[in-house]
Amino acid sequence: MKKAVLIIASIIGFIVLGTGGYAYYLYHNVKETASQMHDDIDRVSDKREKKIEPEKKDPISILMLGVDEREHDRGRSDTMIVITVNPNDNSMKMFNIPRDTRTQIIGKGFDDKINHAYAFGGIEMAMDTVENFLDIPIDYYIKVNMEAFKDIVSAVDGVTVNNEMAFNYEGYTFPEGELKLNANEALAYSRMRYEDPRGDLGRNERQRKIIEAIIDEGASFSSLTKVDNILEALGKNVKTNLTFEEMKDIQQNYKEARKHIETFEVKGSGKMINGIYYYMVSEDEKHKITAKLKEHLHIS
């Protein structure tokens, strides 16, 4: 997940689910940043019977992509996180889709690693492929250029996590217990995989801990003093199909959901196919996840 996890979480914390508020002196700066971030897409999900209305507190889904973009190269979505938010019971569900997950790439007609969908066809193909994999609608996307990482973490003065396994990584020591991490430490904490006996599953859990920590930081009153720096980083490094009006509606109607976050894993197993490693998810596991998400989104 690398740098993307923290900037993504900051967007959710500060703009989508934070307590933030829209005081007059901040209103126009936020609106301008939202305009810079906005990138509409010509796409209609066939898994929705009608368009969602955040002002009416419809449950929503968000696909968050962390992309390492280079000049003349779209890059791959190294990070794929799905979040569903239900403002009626004030709850969120959040999980990583392992980037090596083997699935059909919608628009290409063959199976491949799910994170290749973005490289092949951009946001639209990534959203279509995730929709097909999970059999749920994806309403919004947030794409993050991972270069924004350090600016955002520094702007919130770091994050606090409860670390359950002591380890060393990239020159940093992470003892068990409550840790206050700066930008460099948080990056290393979220990247460690091979030293963890759980591999990707352990790394994913640490990534979600950081997301929850930044949501809490973003929702704190003290964060209002850091908004200018945060907005500058967001405007340069984030794209989303959320409009400013939708952000306001979500901030107003969905913000309490951050207090009740359920995280879980996509269970599967590794397999080599033609010399390439894939993460294989059974149909039974996909059905269980789909049922959980459809219930949360109030769709049949």
Rank of each mutant, 00 (worst) to 15 (best):
3 K>R: 12
5 V>D: 04
6 L>K: 14
6 L>S: 15
6 L>P: 03
7 I>S: 15
7 I>P: 13
10 S>L: 08
10 S>R: 07
12 I>L: 15
14 F>C: 14
16 V>P: 01
18 G>V: 04
18 G>W: 01
18 G>Y: 02
25 Y>G: 02
26 L>V: 01
27 Y>R: 15
28 H>L: 08
29 N>T: 04
32 E>N: 13
32 E>T: 12
33 T>N: 07
33 T>P: 09
35 S>Q: 14
42 D>V: 12
42 D>Y: 09
47 K>Q: 11
49 E>R: 13
50 K>R: 15
50 K>P: 00
52 I>Y: 09
54 P>L: 07
55 E>L: 07
55 E>S: 15
56 K>I: 01
63 L>R: 10
68 D>H: 11
69 E>Q: 14
70 R>S: 08
71 E>G: 02
75 G>L: 05
75 G>I: 03
79 T>K: 10
80 M>P: 04
81 I>W: 00
82 V>I: 15
83 I>R: 06
90 N>G: 01
91 S>N: 07
93 K>L: 05
95 F>C: 12
97 I>S: 02
97 I>V: 14
100 D>W: 09
101 T>S: 14
103 T>Y: 11
105 I>G: 06
108 K>L: 11
110 F>E: 09
111 D>K: 12
112 D>G: 06
114 I>H: 02
114 I>C: 02
116 H>V: 01
118 Y>P: 13
120 F>D: 10
120 F>C: 08
121 G>W: 04
127 M>Q: 12
127 M>S: 02
127 M>I: 13
128 D>L: 11
128 D>P: 05
129 T>S: 13
129 T>E: 03
129 T>L: 04
133 F>R: 03
133 F>L: 06
138 I>E: 00
142 I>F: 07
142 I>C: 04
142 I>E: 00
151 D>R: 11
151 D>V: 05
152 I>V: 15
158 G>E: 05
158 G>K: 11
160 T>E: 13
161 V>Y: 04
164 E>K: 15
165 M>T: 07
168 N>Q: 12
170 E>N: 14
171 G>E: 02
173 T>P: 03
173 T>H: 15
176 E>V: 14
176 E>C: 10
182 N>Y: 10
183 A>K: 03
183 A>H: 06
185 E>M: 15
188 A>G: 10
189 Y>D: 05
189 Y>L: 12
191 R>C: 06
192 M>T: 03
192 M>D: 00
196 D>I: 04
196 D>E: 02
199 G>M: 10
201 L>P: 00
201 L>W: 06
204 N>Q: 14
211 I>Y: 10
213 A>E: 03
221 F>K: 09
221 F>H: 05
223 S>P: 01
224 L>H: 06
227 V>E: 01
227 V>F: 11
231 L>Y: 05
234 L>Y: 12
236 K>R: 15
239 K>C: 01
243 T>Q: 07
247 M>W: 00
248 K>S: 01
248 K>D: 00
251 Q>I: 00
253 N>K: 15
257 A>K: 01
260 H>S: 14
262 E>A: 12
263 T>C: 13
263 T>E: 07
266 V>Q: 04
268 G>I: 05
269 S>M: 06
272 M>S: 13
273 I>W: 03
280 M>P: 03
280 M>C: 04
281 V>S: 09
284 D>I: 10
286 K>D: 00
286 K>F: 06
288 K>I: 07
288 K>M: 07
290 T>G: 10
292 K>C: 03
295 E>Q: 14
297 L>C: 13
297 L>Q: 11
298 H>V: 14
298 H>Q: 13
